[in-house]
């Protein structure tokens, strides 16, 4: 097998006394589609932010292509947040054209002439692919939640990142729209040969979408000091081969270790 794209060895994260993550050991290869599930505050988003570059690991080593993970966000790792990830002052088309312009090393990233026409054509094409071809001139506040997320995805994809990070991207969307978004993300994953990490609250979504499912949970639990031990990856499953039984078992286990239901189905 080829060199892993991302290699985590004993990765841990602590904030002062609170241990969030501990002993995370995983390898990720190019082209994988990993879904991260777990209860709120279990560290799955923290792990995503470490890959994004806005958080750094406190212990262990996290490698990208064999080198330490950069300590700030960069163009090789695209992101779609649950909200606020499009620019409200630009039209749909300009949002994507600007993404192309930022790649140019200039003061403002504004494009002119032939470059601008090229970027507009590319942007229009990708917006067509994500289903926003009819809304190029609209501003984000005129879009529905699903359309905003489509725009955020288009922005990320036009920069051709190797890794696409999705932080609960569909958490605020209606179930019907979620299904459309799943189809879209799978389509983009295949056509652009992306490696995707997606944090989700919805275990079913995790099973259906990815090639690999990570469940974040605490291995050890001290009732006197709930934050003394951090979470780790308790299940690392190649989900395409796993059946419904495993899903039920994990649901039961996550439910048993917590006083409250660890995830809820958004309906």
């Amino acid at each position: 097998m080829s060199e892993p794209l991302i290699q985590a060895t004993n990765v841990g994260k602590t904030y002062g006394q609170d241990v969030i993550l501990e002993r995370v050991n995983v390898d990720v290869h190019e082209g994988e589609f990993i879904t991260l599930v777990g209860a709120s505050g279990c560290g799955k988003s923290t792990f995503l932010k470490m890959i994004l570059g806005t958080e750094q690991s406190s212990t262990g080593s996290l490698l990208l292509n064999g080198k330490p993970m950069p300590n700030e966000p960069g163009p090789d790792r695209g992101i779609v947040f649950q909200q606020y990830s499009v620019f409200p002052h630009m039209t749909v088309l300009d949002n994507v054209v600007a993404a192309r312009g930022f790649q140019k090393a200039s003061l403002t990233g504004l494009l002119f002439g032939r470059q601008k026409r090229q970027a507009r054509d590319d942007a229009a094409a990708i917006l067509e692919q994500v289903g926003l071809g009819h809304a190029l001139k609209r501003y984000p506040h005129e879009l529905s939640g699903g359309m905003k997320q489509r725009l955020a995805i288009a922005q990320a994809v036009i920069c051709k990142p190797k890794i696409l990070l999705l932080d609960e991207p569909f958490g605020a969307l209606d179930p019907g729209i979620r299904a459309d978004m799943h189809a879209l993300i799978l389509d983009l994953w295949k056509t652009h040969k992306l490696t995707i990490f997606m944090v989700t609250h919805d275990l079913k979504e995790g099973f259906y979408l990815g090639t690999r499912l990570w469940v974040f949970d605490k291995l050890r639990h001290d009732p006197q000091a709930p934050n003394a031990y951090g979470a780790s990856i308790t299940y690392d499953l190649p989900v395409s081969q796993e059946g419904r039984d495993t899903l039920d078992e994990i649901t039961r286990q996550l439910g048993a270790s917590r006083p409250t239901i660890p995830y809820k189905e958004t309906a």
Binding site: G74, G78, F102, Q103, C159
Partner: peptide
């Protein structure tokens, strides 16, 4: 989020 997003766009 917008600042982080812009950085991931280069």
């Amino acid at each position: 989020e917008q600042l982080v997003k812009a950085q991931t766009l280069g």
